[in-house]
Each structure stands twice: as C-alpha cells, then as structure tokens.
Amino acid sequence: MNRFLKDKEHLVRMAALFAVGVVLFLILKAVLVPKGFGVYGHYRAGALADNRVRAPRFAGRSACIECHTDERDAWKGGKHAGVGCEACHGALAKHAEDPSASNAFKPDPKTICFTCHLTNAAKPRKFPQIDPKNHFDGGACNGCHSPHAPDKEPKK
C-alpha cells in the first residue's frame, strides 16, 4: 500500500462499511417496496382495490322495487317517496341477492315511526313530530297511517 493511503486505511475501511450499508439498504428497498406503489400517488395502487372489495350490505332502493312492485306503487308519489326501503326495513343486500336467504325485517308498527317522528326541540320545526302524550293510544301507527305513503289512505 502506498504511503498516502497508509494513514487513511482505517477511514477507507469505515467508508467501505458505510457503502455496504447503503447498498444493502438500496437492495432491501428494491425488494420490499410493494408492487404498484406510486402509480397514482404516494401509496399502494392496490389499496384502491382493497377499499372496493367489500360486499355492500345495503342493497339500495332500486334493487328492492325491482321485485316489490306493489310496495313501489304504494310508496311512489307519497310523502315517504324520499325514504329508502332499508331506512326502516334494515340492510337487505343478502336478501336482494337471494330472496330466499333472509326475509325483510318487519319493523314494529308501534315504535318504528318514532325513530323519526318523535318530537324533539332540535328537529326542524316543519318536520311532522308526534308527542306520544297527545297523540298515541298505544296502538300501531299503521292502523291510521299508511307507512309507505302516510298522506295516502291507509290500507284496510
């Protein structure tokens, strides 16, 4: 070894150690960074698909009225036409997929209406609200009101 390097040999070795470290890191990085990272931005492109794989539990009103045409006709044009079926009947994607699999949840006509229509000071004033003290005899609401279209005649 020449004289110039002789007194720096320890530094050369240290530098080599650092270089090995850097190279190792670069190899690790090349191997371990997930595929598709950075395609759309600084994230794994596959994460988009991961967020999409979940199966919906709510089928959506358009799926319901495909079969339930009687209910659709009663519901359309009434005051509850903006209310989705599953708002009262629960999540029914399974039922929409296979009607025999599970039956629609039949809400209790004595209580379900209070979910929305129970009086509350924070509700918009023009929203129809019921104080059970004045307007409730313990019977079912659908005795007088048609749940699918309360402004229409109730079903007898």
Partner: peptide, 18 residues
Amino acid sequence: TLGVDNISEESLRIDDKL
C-alpha cells in the same frame, strides 16, 4: 478498530481534522 493498528501521528492528525 476495523483491524487497523495504525496510530501514527499523521493518522491521528487526520482523525482529529475529520
């Protein structure tokens, strides 16, 4: 020491500078 035994004055001077 990374196997380097050299502690010549010159090498220590370089160390100090660095």
